[in-house]
Amino acid sequence: MPPRIQQQTLFTRPMVAVLLCTLNGFAGFYLLLSTVPEYAAQTSGHTAVAGIITGALMASTAELAPAGRRSQGTGWNGVATGLGGTVGTPFGVLLAHRFGYQPLFVAGTVAPLCGLLAALFIVAPRPAPVVRPRVVTGIVRPAILRPFILLTAGAMASGAVVTFLPLAAPREPLWLTPVALLLFQLGITGSRWLAGRLGDRFGNRALLLPATLTTAVGVLGATLTGDSATLLILMLVFGAGFGTLQNATLVLMLQRAGRKGFSVAGAQWNLAFDAGLGLGGFCVGIVVQSTSYSIGFAVVSGLLLMVSCIALRDVRAGGEAEGEEK
């Protein structure tokens, strides 16, 4: 969807209500499906609607937050989105393991209805004049490309862990995988808030390298499914690193795009995030077929270590003023 339309029309009360009801309908249809192509088509529509909501929320948050506190604004945005994952990811796995998938799909159908209450209190910001949207071609700009690559690599690690940890970890004890995913999501949610405060105080560029390295170390926890304590600790570390990376890359892309490009930058960030999630599950799945889950997770960790040089390059790049508004 064009960023101009996204920012100017989506964050109104009627449109949010329509989008949430659409999201609710997509979740309910899972109960009626039986084949892989049907599930693939359904999931594509479901994630498309969720992506539109997330992109509009990002652009509106950037508009509403003062320039000097934009990191904190996106941090609270991350807390809001992270709370859903904190509840849904671990307890979804637990529901599926314990009761099967039908109760899970019913819960996914009911949950979006809670957002209808919040829609009553939405105040849409007045959008800035939007320049010609260049979502894909604008990524090649080095100042945007560096955080784009870092986020894509981090999202690949997240996609790999969320997809394959429930399969790689032992079924007993039953609580191990849900608790590991809960700690991962809690790490993301808490670090988004903390990264917002640190970003406004010290600059988001300084957070890129430690966030990338922490994510690379944390994902190795998925290779240690036989040691419950180490797995849980590293999943928390993994979430903290990835959450910090999310917030730092988002704010940098927004600031470098300038106020007129907030919607474009938000769309680019979502593109990196969603592409990374899909690529992580797909690529690690290919590796796992001929090797093992541990090697698949180790490959993703190695990828993050490789792209850490991009984070270092961004730190050393002194050409772009981090807080510049265009």
Rank of each mutant, 00 (worst) to 15 (best):
P127I: 02
A311D: 13
L117E: 08
G302I: 04
R70L: 14
M235D: 13
G276P: 06
G115D: 04
F164R: 12
F242I: 12
F121E: 12
G318F: 03
S60P: 04
E325S: 13
L23E: 03
K260D: 14
A160V: 04
C21Q: 09
V131Q: 11
A143S: 15
F121Q: 13
N270Y: 02
P14M: 09
G276Y: 01
I295W: 08
C21P: 09
A248C: 07
L224I: 13
M253E: 02
C283Y: 05
S228G: 13
M58W: 03
F91P: 00
P166T: 09
C114N: 01
Y30W: 02
M15S: 13
W76V: 15
A56R: 08
V217R: 02
T22L: 10
V179D: 06
S60I: 01
A118K: 02
G285A: 04
G51I: 08
V219N: 13
A80W: 02
R98A: 11
P178N: 03
R98P: 00
G221S: 15
A124Q: 08
L303H: 13
L23K: 01
G319L: 10
T35Y: 06
A195Q: 00
R316S: 12
G85F: 11
G159A: 07
L120Y: 10
M1K: 11
F164W: 03
S71H: 00
L120A: 11
R259C: 03
A56Q: 09
E320Q: 14
V288W: 06
G138I: 15
V287Q: 07
W175S: 09
Q246W: 08
R70T: 01
L10T: 15
A119L: 04
G280I: 12
A275R: 02
Q185S: 11
T189F: 03
G296W: 09
L271R: 05
A169C: 04
I122Q: 04
L213V: 13
P3A: 05
A41G: 12
A240L: 15
S290L: 10
N204K: 09
I139C: 07
E324W: 14
C21T: 07
L174G: 07
G199D: 07
F184Y: 13
A169P: 06
E172H: 09
V251S: 01
T163P: 06
R192N: 04
A17C: 11
F99H: 00
F105P: 00
I188F: 00
A41M: 14
A195P: 01
A67F: 11
A169F: 12
G159R: 01
K260M: 10
V284Q: 10
F91A: 05
A267H: 04
G278C: 02
A155S: 11
A56K: 02
L83Q: 09
V219G: 08
A67T: 13
G154R: 07
